[in-house]
């Protein structure tokens, strides 16, 4: 299983506009193409997860994630914000790169946790944050995932 399989160009936005955690979460959810009601439910679920503890894992990276009935398969998205925002990350540094993961409660292939773990491993590679800053297009982002064999 490789991360590249789960990302599409539609699910990548390199110029996020939001200036708060809530706005960024909504923008990321918008990349999944769900109806308005489902987006609202998903937003609440992601907020609840954030309230339990921030998904900002440090080095400018956050991985908001949850399981929800509003999706029928694993969905992922990536967003980059030019100016980092306050996210209450574990290192108290602002966040610039966001990986969204949403999965249904039951998955036949049970990919949610492996994908979550793979993204966490990918972003912990020392050069990845810098490489993410230099990505110019969704295609380059996908190429980076492939190059890293994530």
């Amino acid at each position: 299983m490789e991360l590249r399989e789960f990302f599409t160009e539609d699910g990548i936005k390199l110029d996020l506009q939001g200036s708060s955690k809530d706005e960024i979460l909504k923008e990321l959810i918008g990349l999944l193409g769900l109806d308005d009601k489902s987006q609202g439910i998903l937003f609440k679920m992601l907020k609840r997860r954030e309230n339990l503890g921030s998904t900002g894992i440090g080095k400018g990276i956050a991985i908001p994630h949850c399981r929800s009935l509003v999706v029928n398969r694993l969905r992922v998205a990536f967003g980059r914000k030019a100016e980092p925002i306050e996210y209450r990350a574990i290192d108290d540094q602002p966040v610039q790169y966001f990986f969204l993961i949403v999965a249904p409660p039951l998955e036949v292939s049970n990919q949610y946790l492996p994908v979550l773990g793979k993204i966490a491993g990918f972003v912990k590679e020392p050069d990845v944050p810098g490489r993410l800053a230099g990505v110019q297009s969704p295609r380059e982002f996908l190429a980076l995932l492939e190059e890293k064999g994530a």
């Binding site: 009601k37 439910i41 609440k44 679920m45 609840r48 997860r49 949850c66 399981r67 929800s68 009935l69 509003v70 409660p105």
Partner: peptide
């Protein structure tokens, strides 16, 4: 139904 969905999602978590 929306509330039920949210409860179910929380219970899954």
């Amino acid at each position: 139904l929306e509330t039920l969905l949210e409860i179910q999602d929380l219970k899954t978590q």
